[in-house]
Amino acid sequence: MHNDVVTDVSYGEFVMRGEILGVERRRRWSDEEKLAIVTSVGIDVATVTRVAQHHDVTRQQIYGWRYELKRKGLW
């Protein structure tokens, strides 16, 4: 259960209104999970965009993981 919080922030004559629905947590991915996601690009013509959407990550994360895994010698 979470509490809804509504905030108003005023900047001169503009008012920004935002709603906080809950606490987001950072997900942690093991090197094995990252490798599985990165290597799934290209299988059955899967694009980086399609793989990212399927795993609910950004394209930039996949490219970053690819770079990181290459640097570690895992890919």
Rank of each mutant, 00 (worst) to 15 (best):
R25L: 15
Y11Q: 14
R17K: 05
H55W: 07
R26A: 14
V41E: 00
L74H: 10
G73A: 06
L35E: 07
Q60E: 05
L74A: 03
I43M: 04
G73F: 08
V5N: 03
N3S: 15
Q61E: 09
S40V: 00
I37T: 05
G12A: 07
E24S: 14
R26E: 15
W65R: 02
R50L: 10
S10E: 15
V23T: 09
Q60T: 03
Y63A: 06
T58S: 14
I20C: 12
Q61G: 01
W29D: 01
R28Y: 07
S40Y: 01
W65C: 06
H54I: 10
V23I: 15
I37M: 06
H55A: 04
G42S: 11
E68R: 02
R27W: 06
V48L: 06
A36V: 04
V57N: 05
W75L: 12
S10K: 15
T47M: 08
H54K: 14
R17M: 09
H2R: 07
A46W: 04
M1I: 07
T49Y: 08
Y63H: 13
E33I: 04
L74S: 04
V6A: 10
S10D: 14
A52D: 03
E32Q: 08
H2Q: 12
L74E: 07
W65K: 01
K34T: 03
T39D: 09
E68F: 07
H54P: 02
L74P: 07
Q60G: 05
L35M: 02
D56S: 15
H2D: 06
R28I: 07
K72N: 08
V23W: 02
D44P: 00
I62Q: 02
V9S: 12
I37Y: 03
S40W: 04
D4P: 01
D31F: 04
M16C: 13
H2F: 11
S40P: 03
V51L: 05
W29I: 11
E68H: 00
R28A: 08
L35I: 06
V23L: 11
V41Y: 04
Y67N: 13
E24R: 13
G22A: 01
H55V: 08
V48M: 08
T58H: 04
T47K: 06
L74F: 10
I37G: 02
R26T: 09
E13R: 11
V9E: 13
D8N: 14
R50G: 02
D8S: 13
A46D: 11
W75V: 04
M16S: 13
M1R: 08
E19A: 03
K34P: 00
Q61H: 12
L35Q: 01
